[in-house]
Design a protein around this nucleic acid. Structure first.
Lengths: 174, 174
DNA sequence: TATTGTTATACTCTATAACTATA
DNA sequence: TATAGTTATAGAGTATAACAATA
């Protein structure tokens, strides 16, 4: 300590008078919100018996359902995920019977990923679960506020990520 | 596929007519926003002092600066982090000279964590960096919209996490 | 408090196979 | 053909962060 104040009376025993700037930093609040979402949603495991799909799996499933058949490269381009990490995600979706991996006969390096019937039903169920989760999470916001929140989040995303721009070339899931 | 449509005309060749519900699910948008923040924060690094402190380190530093001296248990209670994980965080802060670990003479199992002079200066610098990062991230929002966004996020957090409630017993950092 | 281990996510690097273009 | 360059998938390894069990 550079000063010589007596150790029994530290100058910081009371909270600082200025409001903590981190608390009004949206990136901090968003960080805490994600921790909250994980706590609320996180205990449920894989898709096997009705838990929530995790985000990477849900996004890949929704992407294939919306635009399939797709190669894994096309999915990773749309989702902006690492193509290597997508391998395990598609492994899990295939193991659960939600998507099918078939080789593209025109280019045998590629797969043709397609959603299955159970995959479509699982996707619909996951959408319902997400909707209920969102209801619970954002309960304190009025209807109009939720719409405003979505609008603001989309505009922020679109400002940095062309996938979310109105005329985006490769939207991730719709 | 349950139907018998010809393989040359898959029924999903066009995107579905209904808007993708995930895109209006705030938990999905927040997830994408966090990925965006990570990408942006990663490129904001500067050579001088190693760039941005990561969130757990920044939060622990801000917590000790606001309420110190604190034991590690008190910090983990305020931040809702695992006390075990806090060990490495405080190790790093101590190694960089930002906080001091001294044993509590009244209970020698506890530490009395205190921020150092360099720690206060680093915290101020990190707040500035965060503020600039937030400026860049949320540029498309008007001043009033940012205030509304902060207000909504805080209300959502407070609804599930008593630390953020107006009269919260143990606020995390202020 | 601290340690150890596990899981989830994301990133880097490398390997292999299959495609494309060209000599 | 033969060769070189590129792409699609896969795997190993690393890093951050959250969580559990235990010393």
């Amino acid at each position: 300590m550079p000063d010589g104040s007596p150790p029994a009376a530290p100058p910081e025993s009371a909270p600082e008078s200025a409001p903590e700037p981190l608390l009004s930093a949206p990136s901090y609040l968003v960080y805490e919100l994600v921790r909250l979402i994980r706590r609320k949603a996180g205990t449920t495991r894989t898709a096997d018996n009705g838990g929530l799909l995790r985000m990477p799996h849900l996004m890949a499933l929704a992407c294939v359902a919306a635009y399939g058949p797709l190669s894994q490269r096309e999915v990773s381009d749309r989702l902006w995920t690492d193509a290597g990490d997508l391998v395990a995600v598609v492994d899990a979706l295939e193991r659960d019977g939600l998507v099918e991996r078939r080789r593209d006969p025109g280019d045998r390096r590629r797969y043709r990923l397609e959603v299955t019937g159970p995959g479509r039903r699982a996707l619909a169920a996951q959408r319902d679960r997400r909707a209920r989760l969102n209801e619970e999470l954002f309960a304190p916001l009025a209807e109009q506020e939720r719409a405003d929140l979505e609008d603001m989040l989309l505009r922020v995303l679109a400002h940095h990520d062309p996938r979310f721009a109105p005329g985006g070339a490769r939207p991730p899931i719709a």
